[in-house]
Each structure stands twice: as structure tokens, then as C-alpha cells.
Simulated scan of single mutants.
Amino acid sequence: MSYLLGGVALAALAAAIAIVRSFRPAPLPAPEPWAGPLPEAVPPPTMAVYQLPTGTYENRAFLAYRGGAFRDRRRFAATAVLVRHPAGDLLIDAGFGADVDAHLATMPSYRRTPHEAGATVRDQLRAKGYDMTRLRGVVITHAHWDHVSGLDSLDAPVWLNPAEARYVARARDAGVFRHVTRHHEIHHYTFDGPPYLGFPASHDVHGDGSVVIVEAGGHTDGSVVVFVTLPGGRRYAFVGDLTWQTEGVTLRAERPKVLQLLADVDPARVRASLRRIIALAGRVHVVPAHDVRAHDPIPLWSES
């Protein structure tokens, strides 16, 4: 995310958001709840997910969603998720890397947020004796720096769809991605599967329905949602930056208009995908990438 402002700029943005709020109601129209069956999935018994927090940065709720309080300071997550599967493990996003300070320094000064860096994904995996040959790749929800910084210390293929490949080739905000992946293998995948839970196209990673990536562009050209189904039937939707906090789902609250213009390449597409996720609330556990609270039900890799 990385949109904490300072001083006069912060006050000016607060005033602008207040004006915009007065002209447009905050909540999105409520979609019809998903009433159909959930897609078939046959996850293997040994499949599991773990969170690997790599640090946090500070932001204000009023910048994250419409109706958020100016005084509500929150720790925003920079957390990777390890999905273990006998056919090969995947990471969803990479968190902060060893050179996080240098990566943050590439951002404009008004987007350099106060942050606390923890152990990188690589260090956390090695501390538990993880066999790195099991890591099939890193699926990025999108190519912004705070989702890919940790690629600087990971030797694993980076999964990229065609729309996000176009984004990283042209976008200034993908500079860190281009830098940290210059020596990485890029695994190109396509949305070769049918519609999935209201999303127009999908890619079933293992062919068993346990990990399904869906097309959800709008924040970036090729941003995605990753659905994970575990043995026992619990389902997660890792939604990246469709919303920065869970209130985007529970309150149907979009980003403030000013932040939409700064952060999203196509706010209308983000809105459509967010409403699809809202329709699934209660059927799947939604995990916005930057909401620390949403990661709480996922066990820590360090305690595995």
C-alpha cells in the first residue's frame, strides 16, 4: 500500500477525502450473497497453509477505506503465506526482503511509511530446516514493492500472468519488481480454466481444486485473488490489495476516491471484484494482504 502522508500533505488529503465523502455514500451496493455450491476441491490430507510475517508498516484507517478514522493508526501487514502441497509448495507474495530499506527508498518521499522489518521469508524457512527444493514458486497477487521485496533473497520461480507481465514492463511502480527478479526464472501462466465463484477465468494450479488463481485486475493490470481449500473444507481467499483492510468487505467500503486515483489502474474493475468477494463473505475466509487481523486464523510457520 504505502500511502502514509506527512504534515501539510496529510491534512490536505484528509480535507479532500472529507469533501468527497460528502458527495458519495461510502458503502458499495450489497451484492446478492453467493447461493450456489462451492467449487469441487480434493485437497490432499497433508496440505496446509502457514503465515510468515516479515514486518509491518504504519498507516491510518482513513487512508485505507471510506469511513476510516483519521486517528486510527494501524499496523499493516507485509506477510507471505506458504501453501504446502505434496505436488510442490507455493508462496503467496514475498513480504519484506533483506534490502527492504533500499526498496522503500525508491518510492516518492510522501509514500515512505514508518516500518518495522522482521525476518525475511528465506530466513524463516531456513530456520525451520525447510527443503527449498520443495518450493515450486512464488505467486504474487500483484507486483508492487511491498509484495515482492522478499524476492531479493529467494531463489524460486516467480509466477506471472500476461496482464501483470505487461504491467511490470511499463509501470513505474513495478521498478522494485524489475530489480529483484532480474535473475529469477519467470513462470508464465494463463487463466485457462472456467469462471470461478463469480470471477471470469481461473487457473487450477494442481488440478485438484485446492489452489485456484483467478483474474482480478484493476489494482494493477494483472492482479489476482488466490483461493485455497484445505482438508476439512476450510477455504481462504487471498485478495491482495482489492481492499487494504477487512472493512472493505464487512462495511462494503471502497478506498477513498483520492486513493483510488493514486493506487488503482482501473477502480471500476476493483469495485467489481470486491463485490464478488463481498458476496462470498461467510463462505470463505477473506484475507486482505495488509490486514494483520485477517491473518490471525492462519498458523505461524515459526510454530509449525
Results as ranks from 00 to 15, higher is better:
residue 52 L to C: 08
residue 53 P to L: 02
residue 54 T to Y: 11
residue 55 G to W: 08
residue 55 G to I: 04
residue 57 Y to D: 05
residue 57 Y to P: 03
residue 60 R to I: 03
residue 62 F to P: 03
residue 71 R to A: 14
residue 71 R to V: 08
residue 73 R to W: 15
residue 74 R to T: 12
residue 75 R to M: 04
residue 77 A to I: 03
residue 79 T to D: 04
residue 79 T to Y: 02
residue 80 A to P: 05
residue 80 A to L: 04
residue 81 V to L: 13
residue 81 V to W: 09
residue 85 H to K: 03
residue 86 P to N: 08
residue 87 A to C: 02
residue 88 G to H: 13
residue 88 G to P: 10
residue 88 G to Q: 12
residue 91 L to A: 10
residue 92 I to E: 06
residue 94 A to V: 07
residue 94 A to W: 07
residue 96 F to G: 04
residue 96 F to R: 10
residue 97 G to Q: 13
residue 100 V to I: 11
residue 102 A to T: 07
residue 102 A to M: 00
residue 105 A to I: 03
residue 106 T to H: 07
residue 107 M to N: 08
residue 108 P to L: 03
residue 110 Y to A: 12
residue 113 T to V: 05
residue 114 P to D: 07
residue 116 E to M: 06
residue 116 E to Q: 15
residue 118 G to W: 05
residue 123 D to T: 15
residue 126 R to C: 01
residue 127 A to E: 12
residue 128 K to P: 02
residue 131 D to F: 08
residue 133 T to V: 08
residue 137 G to M: 06
residue 138 V to E: 06
residue 138 V to C: 11
residue 140 I to Y: 07
residue 140 I to G: 02
residue 141 T to N: 14
residue 143 A to C: 12
residue 143 A to G: 15
residue 146 D to A: 07
residue 149 S to V: 06
residue 151 L to S: 11
residue 153 S to G: 15
residue 153 S to D: 15
residue 154 L to D: 11
residue 156 A to M: 08
residue 156 A to I: 05
residue 158 V to N: 07
residue 160 L to A: 09
residue 160 L to E: 12
residue 162 P to H: 03
residue 162 P to F: 02
residue 170 R to F: 01
residue 173 D to C: 02
